[in-house]
Amino acid sequence: MAGLELLSDQGYRVDGRRAGELRKIQARMGVFAQADGSAYIEQGNTKALAVVYGPHEIRGSRSRALPDRALVNCQYSSATFSTGERKRRPHGDRKSSEMGLQLRQTFEAAILTQLHPRSQIDIYVQVLQADGGTYAACVNAATLAVLDAGIPMRDFVCACSAGFVDGTSLADLSHVEEAAGGPQLALALLPASGQIALLEMDARLHEDHLEQVLEAAARAARDVHTLLDRVVRQHVQEASLLLGD
């Protein structure tokens, strides 16, 4: 039995996309009334919910407060039912805390934290369904939620993953493609300036190919930006209509 063919000779991937194409993205902002900001995103079958509180006073020990900027606190969790196999994921396992740290790094780079010294911003992200590219979905959802909360940012943070198969880079990997074990790269980009907020790669990839994969991920992240931008504009329009301006 031969393994899955990730990229056919005709240039189609397992799910019928071409190499550079994203999965279908749908997003909504302001899904919860209690939170300061919230958003829900679907990237194909990967679904994530993000909620933002803050900026507010430091909770718990005051010694954690930073004198010159806001503290960004990120928590990641994934639902028991998010993957094919039902598995209990205790709070604070290694994977979740790692993801939380990565998100924190990403958003510390994007949020203008120096505007809110000695305060705290909480970002909670939950993955409801995982089908590859969870990090990217979390970042994109959190961006929308932060925007919804009205916290000033340098730019959108748009994330996307990319892989490499037979000399071609694939954008926005699905779970099947991730599970095949090839190199995979996650990129969070500030699209206006082209600055990289976070870059992570698993597996080995020859340095000659890195640029190509990076380029594919960046292009995909820019595409994500166009879509998110549309969502934000639409949300603002709806909100202003409701306000009756």
Binding site: D15, G16, K24, V176
Partner: peptide
């Protein structure tokens, strides 16, 4: 056009529901 289908698949040890996207062009 994009559309989705759901496929079920079993693996040794237990039944697992696998959901895959299938884009039609």
């Amino acid at each position: 056009l994009k559309s989705k289908t759901f496929l079920k698949k079993t693996r040794a040890g237990g039944v697992m529901k696998i959901v895959r996207e299938h884009y039609l062009r």
